[in-house]
Simulated scan of single mutants.
Amino acid sequence: MKKTLIYAISLISYLVTSAALTLPVHAQKKPMVSKQSKTHSKLPLFNDGDMIFQSSISPQCKAIQLATRSPYSHCGIIFYERGKPYVLEAVQPVTVTKLEHWIARGEQQHYAVKRLKNANQVLASSTLAKMKAIGKNFIGKNYDATFEWSDDKIYCSELIWKIYQRGAGIEVGKLEKLQDFDLTSPEVKTKLKERYGNTVPLNETVISPASIFNSPLLITVASNY
């Protein structure tokens, strides 16, 4: 009887261990929260209005990198609420994301942060309040997968550009046309075909993450690339 009981306990222990090792990936993500909390505690203290860039893991990431010849495919604006940093970003839909969660979503958790060279002089509290208000008006809008220059839908770099232009009177990054990008790679051609069919709006006004990142108005304040 004693041997039988020991055997039963051993069998149950083995089955529980085996089940734990075969949990689906999404069910094993909880421990990452505490790990990211530790990462968050080590992050530099950023400023309201700082711009953060990453290489996202979205399906269109590679096409954007190739078309703009840049490692950056996604970006957002850092704002603080009750002393905690968040990223206002245009995904589906436009939303506000905790900074550590935003960083965790990027490829290998790499990121770079840019700031206006004269931010202390230009971004007064009243200006930042106006920028935040403009940004909040975009929350809930759908992501613009066809990169149109309207407010009906919006994409990530367009969100940054319009908030700075309308809230601070500053144009961060050079506006371009879709035809100005490198559209020759198979990945880019495939995405263009998916989004536009046979009629690609080559004359559409576009602002890319790379154009904002490379703006001479900005300096790099943090990077783990």
Rank of each mutant, 00 (worst) to 15 (best):
A8V: 15
I9C: 12
S10Q: 08
I12A: 15
S13A: 13
S13K: 00
Y14I: 15
Y14N: 01
L15S: 12
V16Y: 07
T17I: 15
T17C: 11
T17D: 03
A19K: 11
A20G: 10
L21Q: 09
T22S: 13
T22C: 11
T22A: 09
L23D: 07
P24W: 10
V25M: 04
V25F: 03
H26N: 11
K29G: 07
P31E: 13
P31T: 10
V33D: 10
K35C: 03
K35W: 05
K35E: 02
Q36F: 14
Q36R: 13
S37G: 02
S37E: 13
T39H: 07
T39L: 11
H40V: 05
H40Q: 14
S41G: 04
P44K: 04
L45W: 05
N47H: 15
G49T: 11
F53Y: 12
Q54D: 02
S56R: 09
I57K: 08
S58E: 07
K62E: 07
A63T: 00
I64C: 00
I64F: 07
I64G: 01
T68M: 01
S70N: 12
S70K: 04
P71C: 03
P71A: 10
S73M: 03
S73F: 02
C75R: 00
C75L: 06
G76N: 02
I77D: 08
F79C: 00
F79A: 04
R82I: 00
G83C: 02
P85A: 10
P85H: 05
V87T: 11
E89L: 07
E89R: 08
Q92R: 12
V94G: 00
V96C: 06
V96P: 03
K98I: 05
L99K: 13
E100D: 15
E100L: 01
H101V: 11
H101N: 10
H101C: 06
W102S: 11
W102H: 13
I103C: 09
A104W: 08
R105Y: 13
R105I: 00
G106T: 04
Q108K: 15
Q109I: 02
A112V: 08
V113C: 12
N120C: 02
V122S: 10
S125I: 10
T127G: 01
T127V: 14
T127L: 01
L128C: 06
A129L: 08
K132L: 14
K132R: 01
G135E: 13
K136A: 12
N137K: 15
N137W: 02
F138N: 05
I139C: 02
